[in-house]
Design a protein around this nucleic acid. Structure first.
Length: 210
DNA sequence: ACCCAGGTGGCCC
DNA sequence: GGGCCACATGGG
């Protein structure tokens, strides 16, 4: 067993099953509706506290628009969408991003399901071409909504890699390659491992703050 | 009254 | 390829 696998086992023993947000994100299989909720969450979570994302998701749910098709229909009611997602911060940008994403899915692929029928590489390339979708958001969507084997690199992963000296370079592509080369190519392991890294990261942040 | 949080795009060199 | 900035809210 290599360093990465050992770390995974260790965190797994420490935290057990994914909790909170991760109980949905790591759920298998997910319904169509749940997958769409994961996508919205991934966009709203950019540079924001998960607690604030939940407030925004709750507003969308109450209005019955926590679906890609429904968001697309709000294209002429941008102010309304902005109001709903306000708690997640950067709400004007994020409203634009949700609309751009929905427009892409509906116009080009009809549904999220159809979109995921393509090869992983094609899916990723198309996601990165959408305004407001960078590598982390794209990979979160592929891994947690699409159940596709691609490892997500975020700030917590980067910090952990530095702390444990898992790498010499810490660019997104390099770290992603490193994690993937040292783990079995399994979306289930990638989903769990990344969730565990975030759970561990939050615990440490909290401890330092106290 | 600060400071922080799963990023991204635009601009500059 | 990398550095700096804007974007905005809720909670400690």
């Amino acid at each position: 067993m290599n360093t990465f696998e050992k770390l995974y086992k260790k965190l797994k023993r420490k935290y057990g099953c994914p909790k909170g947000q991760w109980s949905l994100w790591c759920k298998r299989p997910k319904t169509k509706k749940e997958k769409e909720e994961v996508v919205m969450g991934a966009i709203l979570a950019q540079r924001t506290n998960w607690k604030n994302v939940e407030l925004a998701l709750e507003n969308l749910r109450k209005e019955g628009v926590l679906l890609i098709e429904k968001i697309y229909q709000l294209k002429n009611r941008k102010k309304f969408l902005e109001k709903l997602i306000r708690p997640s911060g950067f709400y004007k940008q994020k409203a634009k991003r949700l609309l751009k994403f929905s427009e892409f899915i509906i116009k080009k692929h009809k549904s999220l399901e159809n979109f995921f029928k393509q090869d992983l590489e094609i899916c990723r390339k198309e996601l990165l071409e959408i305004y407001g979708i960078g590598p982390e958001t794209a990979d979160s969507i592929l891994l947690y909504a699409g159940d596709l084997p691609i490892f997500v690199i975020d700030e917590y992963t980067r910090r952990l890699a530095k702390k444990r000296k898992l790498a010499k370079k810490f660019s997104y592509d390099h770290l992603q390659k490193l994690f993937q080369e040292n783990l079995p190519k399994s979306f289930k392991i990638y989903q769990d491992f990344h969730a565990l890294i975030v759970m561990e990261g939050k615990r440490i942040t909290k401890r330092v703050a106290n």
